[in-house]
């Protein structure tokens, strides 16, 4: 099936099998490997991307369902060589270790801050509950989101 999508601002068109998952489409067809696959049951969140402004788990969406959509992946967050404040927060606060969950975690944080620019610590911990991290114990991730929140609201 033919689909048209805008990925990180670039309009593209592809022919895909209906069964192809969006995450495989992004990684293997579009060639953006920053989005990761960490599970098969929509629980780990490593595959999170923005789809028409909503954070979604791209392992649980068919590529054909994204026909006509605008998608932002981790690769599309930095603008003009400047890190996004959330990316900066993760770096400043040591919000990652192995880095595998990080792209999805940053996308989840991005959604959270769009909807709630000044979240409490509890808001942040709830806001990233769809993303598993096995390395950090989450505290530095919380710090990273707080850092970004502060930077984005002042």
């Amino acid at each position: 099936m033919k689909i048209e999508v805008t990925v990180n601002g670039e309009h593209q068109s592809y022919d895909v099998e209906p069964r192809m998952l969006l995450v495989h489409f992004l990684r293997d067809v579009v060639g953006l490997t920053g989005t990761h696959v960490g599970c098969e049951t929509s629980l780990c969140g490593a595959c999170s991307v923005m789809l028409n402004g909503d954070a979604v788990k791209s392992c649980t969406i068919l590529a054909v369902q994204a026909d006509g959509a605008e998608i932002t992946t981790i690769e599309g967050l930095a603008q003009n060589g400047e890190l996004h404040p959330i990316q900066e927060g993760f770096w400043e606060c040591h919000g990652l270790q192995c880095g595998f969950c990080t792209p999805g975690m940053i996308i989840a944080a991005h959604q959270l801050l769009e909807r709630n620019p000044k979240p409490s610590e509890a808001d942040i911990r709830r806001g990233i509950e769809g993303n598993l991290c096995r390395c950090t114990g989450y505290q530095h991730i919380v710090d990273a989101v707080q850092y970004a929140s502060k930077k984005m609201t002042t």
């Binding site: 929509s42 969140g45 999170s48 909503d54 954070a55 979604v56 788990k57 649980t60 969406i61 989840a108 959604q111 959270l112 806001g127 509950e129 769809g130 993303n131």
Partner: peptide
């Protein structure tokens, strides 16, 4: 329900 990404979809 679920988590933010699941609720979006």
């Amino acid at each position: 329900i679920g988590d933010a990404q699941v609720r979006n979809r």
